[in-house]
Design a protein around this nucleic acid. Sequence first.
DNA 1: AGAGTGACACGTACGCTGTACGTACGTCAA
DNA 2: TTGACGTACGTACAGCGTACGTGTCACTCT
Lengths: 216, 216
Amino acid sequence: MPALTRSRIVAAAIDLIEREGADAISMRRIAAELGVGVMSLYNHVPNKAALLDAVAETVLSEITFTDDPSAEWTERVRIQARAFRQIAHHYPRSTMVVVSRQLNSPAGLFPVERALTTLREAGFDGEEAVQILRTFIAYIIGSLLREVGVTPTFAPVHQADVQLPQVDTSLFPEVGTLAPLLGVCDHEKAFEFGLDMLIRAIAVQLQESKEGSARG
Amino acid sequence: MPALTRSRIVAAAIDLIEREGADAISMRRIAAELGVGVMSLYNHVPNKAALLDAVAETVLSEITFTDDPSAEWTERVRIQARAFRQIAHHYPRSTMVVVSRQLNSPAGLFPVERALTTLREAGFDGEEAVQILRTFIAYIIGSLLREVGVTPTFAPVHQADVQLPQVDTSLFPEVGTLAPLLGVCDHEKAFEFGLDMLIRAIAVQLQESKEGSARG
DNA sequence: AGAGTGACACGTACGCTGTACGTACGTCAA
DNA sequence: TTGACGTACGTACAGCGTACGTGTCACTCT
């Protein structure tokens, strides 16, 4: 049995979350998983909150950015955004943990640096870059939150198509009409749709900004 | 002492969350707040999860839409989105509860109906309307999540400006340069920035869609 | 009037949680 | 050899959600 280690503890936590859901993890369960006493964990982790922070950081640090720095900036932004969405695929049950605690660790800073660099190289000034980044982050987090089902952390991750209970079509005519569309969601398609919208919007903004400064 | 009631319980829960944070609520605390025994609550609420659902639904049902149905659709969308953001102002500590459980209750359906109607009237077909709505919801939820601080539910809601610890500027040059901008966030400005982007994007899309069908 | 019924408040109890504290054992320095 | 230190662990405590049983009403039906 290898030595008890912070990273082994974090790994066990992630494993447990993925297998049984975020609600299932407790210090006792993790300890049992590792075959050690509960209190031994506290030699490596100050408390449960810090452990969850470490989980979030670890998950976040495993996303890999594959965007080619020489590619068109619109494409780079798209690929960086997709990289975040990979979290929802690799660690679906842990995603909720990640999005519900904001990190200021290097693992959280690295993607920020990469995104800002891309935007600055595209021609945005610092303030624009920060605003745009924040907009994308909000969109990505909101999308992930929808994608991971969110509500019952213990429920099966891919509920096929939970039909919403029959709606009162006189009260909600549009919802009634569009129920078939609302009932199911191709998460990839939905993500790409919004991503396209955002990228086209900032492309337009960059164009206007350039014309403005060229004219001025 | 008025009769113990589901709505009184929910109100007490919201009150407690706003005063002491979402982590502070327990069935025992709520019961104590109401001056009743713990188990009395279970005569009106099946369990804690259902109570939190009711909290979310109640908070959600209190948002008021003030958009004029005869106004320009872009303006209506903007005002509807802002209405959601009001949640973060009226119930900052409860916001996390709202966004972390998806409802299919009437309270959750009403804003959906209103949004879909607006988009349909603007000229989008059903599928476009649903996709656009989902994009906006993702953005709004992500924004609210950032705004309510998210991490420590018990922390003061408006932490002035938590300076990120000094970053290694050689590893993160952009982050270092833009630290003053990253360190503080005018949530309203940030929200409006992204909202503008999204609205302009769908306006362009509508234009293209119209031209396409006119030409075809 | 008396009996029956259902709704509701409540106490007790069980199995769970995070973690403070004390202890025991290993390895290394002096 | 002695001491210090890091680590593993058992025990214990306060708190949690809630299953279950009991007592007390208000009401209805005979």
